[in-house]
Write a protein that binds this DNA or RNA. Structure first.
Lengths: 204, 204
DNA sequence: ATTATCTATAGATCTATAGATAATGC
DNA sequence: ATTATCTATAGATCTATAGATAATGC
């Protein structure tokens, strides 16, 4: 059991990592500081040497959870790939390591001002990134389609986790995924010489 | 202050009505039985003469909240009307009297088995109803488009309530609404003699 | 001497229950 | 006599703090 400054930093990281996982699984009010500390291998008494308040842990845990989203976005360079991974049963069944925008969607309307600010900033980043993945189609704005796509992704992953009927849960994932993929297929370009750009990355 | 059997029934209704409103506003764990009882004009001690457990109140309150959805569905006979009302700032700002499928979406993954069952049954009803409002378009299944539409509606209303930036909140509502309306526009029918059916109600 | 963590606990919840009170209804 | 509601409280949380203990680091 360490007591050095570097040990404290490691303990801090461990506490925040546990919280980032458990908050996504159980909600921002779903686990107390004592249980988070215990799972991080320490006791509750040290908590306020690491954080001024419980909400400070929430904010740090949110930021850490969003780092998983960074890695996710780095590895999915097309919208179709992102949709297939996001709206999968694997993601549905692993909220603790999945997208925090999805896992904590319903918690944000009742969260602290500071937690909301972190969530909102991250949503803006992901919206900008997604707008870059949406192909132009001549019919509607790319940002508008990115907003629809994100709304549907977040709604569907939450529904799939909330309903008690496994068949309905799967159907929601599959159909939302298929609809969004076909909706975000690049428009067939009829101008001669303009080759199909399906699967390409679209500049901003 | 009444003590008769019919008074008890009225008290019971009042308790459930308060809960149906407050649970939508604050989440299923956001208010305790004592505060619900107080707001219904009675004291906490009588609670377990009305309900076997707190979860029984949750289940009854859910059923009552869904009655608001019944009335809603009765008064919106086209998908466009439903979308304009659902994805409005008025609905966003009044979760307590609004759609419980939206207000409690994020709570369901952590709710009791019985609460989930009530929610799931209601979602199925609304999905069947919405499938009837979605126009055929020859491209994709109507039920599939109803699933996409509901996912996006629930995702967008939750996002609009959760983000701290009012402009982003409005944009999410507007763009999701506009995208879903244009997506669910009846296909222009090119066969001669087949008149436009825009705005009509579509049979199952 | 400082500090990272520990044990212990105060004070504020929250669900659920016990027993008293004041009505109803036979 | 029965019962709808009341006051009061047990027991289980949960956040936050106080003070002790056992390391680190000058």
């Amino acid at each position: 059991m360490g007591y050095s400054k570097s040990d404290k930093a490691e303990t801090h990281t461990r506490i925040v990592s546990v919280a980032a996982k458990r908050f996504r699984e159980l909600g921002l009010e779903g686990i107390g500081v004592a249980d988070v500390m215990k799972e991080a291998g320490v006791t509750v008494g040290g908590f306020y040497k690491h954080f001024d308040s419980r909400d400070e842990l929430v904010v740090e845990a949110l930021a850490t959870a969003f780092q998983d989203l960074d890695r996710w976005e780095e590895h999915t360079d097309t919208l179709t790939k992102a949709l297939e991974k996001y709206l999968s049963e694997e993601h549905r069944d692993a909220p603790g390591t999945g997208c925090a925008l999805g896992a904590l969607l319903g918690d944000m309307s009742r969260a602290s001002r500071s937690a909301k600010a972190v969530y909102t900033a991250r949503l803006k980043r992901t919206l900008a990134y997604s707008t870059g993945l949406v192909p132009p189609n001549g019919t509607s704005d790319r940002r508008a389609r990115a907003i629809l796509t994100i709304s549907a992704m977040l709604g569907a992953i939450n529904l799939s986790r909330g309903v008690s009927d496994p068949n309905l849960s799967r159907e929601i994932l599959q159909q939302t995924r298929d609809q969004l993929i076909s909706l975000n297929r690049p428009a067939k370009v009829h101008l001669p010489g303009d080759a199909s750009r399906a699967g390409a990355r679209y500049g901003s």
